Amino acid sequence: MAVPLAGFAAGAVVALLVGVFGRVHDPTLTGTTTFGFRTVIDLKVVLSVVIGVLAVLQLVGALWIYGRLGVRAPSWAGTAHRVSGMVTVVLILVVAYNCLWGLGLEVGTFASGAPVPTRTVVHGLLGCLVIGAAVVKVVAVRSRRAPGWFLPLAGGLLFTLIVAVVLTSAVWYIGANGWPGSSGYG
Rank of each mutant, 00 (worst) to 15 (best):
M1A: 14
M1C: 04
A2G: 02
V3L: 00
P4G: 07
A6G: 07
F8R: 11
G11A: 10
A12I: 07
V13I: 15
V14L: 15
A15D: 01
L16F: 15
V18A: 15
G19S: 03
G19V: 06
R23L: 15
R23A: 13
V24M: 06
T32I: 05
F35L: 15
G36W: 10
F37N: 01
F37M: 08
T39G: 03
I41C: 01
K44R: 11
V45F: 12
V46G: 11
L47I: 15
V49N: 03
V49D: 09
V50G: 05
I51T: 13
G52M: 06
G52R: 00
G52W: 04
V53K: 12
V60K: 02
G61H: 09
G61M: 12
L63C: 08
W64F: 13
W64E: 06
G67D: 06
P74S: 14
P74D: 12
W76H: 11
T79S: 14
T79E: 05
A80I: 02
H81A: 12
R82Y: 09
V87C: 10
V87Q: 09
T88C: 09
L91S: 07
V95D: 03
A96Q: 02
Y97D: 03
Y97P: 02
C99P: 01
C99V: 02
G102F: 02
L105V: 13
G108P: 04
T109N: 13
S112D: 08
G113F: 05
A114V: 06
T118M: 15
R119M: 10
V122D: 08
L129P: 00
L129I: 02
I131N: 00
G132D: 01
A133G: 01
A134E: 09
A134N: 07
A134T: 08
V136M: 05
K137P: 00
V138G: 05
V138L: 15
V139S: 14
A140R: 09
S143G: 07
R145D: 12
R145C: 00
F150K: 02
F150Y: 11
F150C: 06
L151W: 08
L151I: 07
P152K: 04
A154W: 04
A154G: 08
G155P: 05
G156P: 01
L157R: 00
L157G: 08
F159W: 06
L161H: 02
I162G: 01
V166C: 05
V166Y: 07
L167E: 05
S169C: 02
A170C: 03
A176I: 03
N177S: 12
N177K: 15
W179Q: 13
G181H: 08
S183R: 12
Y185I: 03
Y185C: 00
